[in-house]
């Protein structure tokens, strides 16, 4: 099925897409059919900059277990570094 479950949020940083590096301003997280990954449904993450056009996108499609592991790894990594560094701007 199409789950249609989608979350969008503003982000700040950079991503490397087909045209090289660009500033990312928005993220879309959704659980739906992948374009490329095997499997019927994947956790899909788009890091984009709408101001630079549809091609300014870093796309990731992960199976659910991988996505959870990645999310935990991100949080564990952030928790492990000194607060003063995390509080700084990207």
């Amino acid at each position: 099925m199409c789950t249609y479950q989608t979350t969008t949020l503003p982000v700040r940083g950079s991503g490397k897409g087909a045209g090289g590096w660009f500033p990312v301003t928005d993220a879309t997280v959704y659980f739906d059919h992948p374009v490329h990954a095997p499997g019927d449904h994947t956790l899909n993450l788009d890091l984009v900059n709408p101001g630079e056009g549809p091609g300014a996108r870093v796309a990731v499609e992960l199976d659910a277990a991988s996505a959870r592991a990645l999310a935990h790894a991100i949080l564990e990594t952030l928790d492990a570094v000194p607060e003063a560094l995390v509080a700084g701007r990207a």
Binding site: T6, T8, D26, T28, Y30, V35, D46, V48, P50, G53, P54, G55, R57, A59
Partner: peptide, 17 residues
């Protein structure tokens, strides 16, 4: 209209947002 000339997956991601 949202994504003229874009690849279909980039266009779909734009339309979804």
């Amino acid at each position: 209209r949202e994504a003229p000339g874009a690849s279909p997956d980039d266009a779909a991601a734009t339309a979804r947002r």
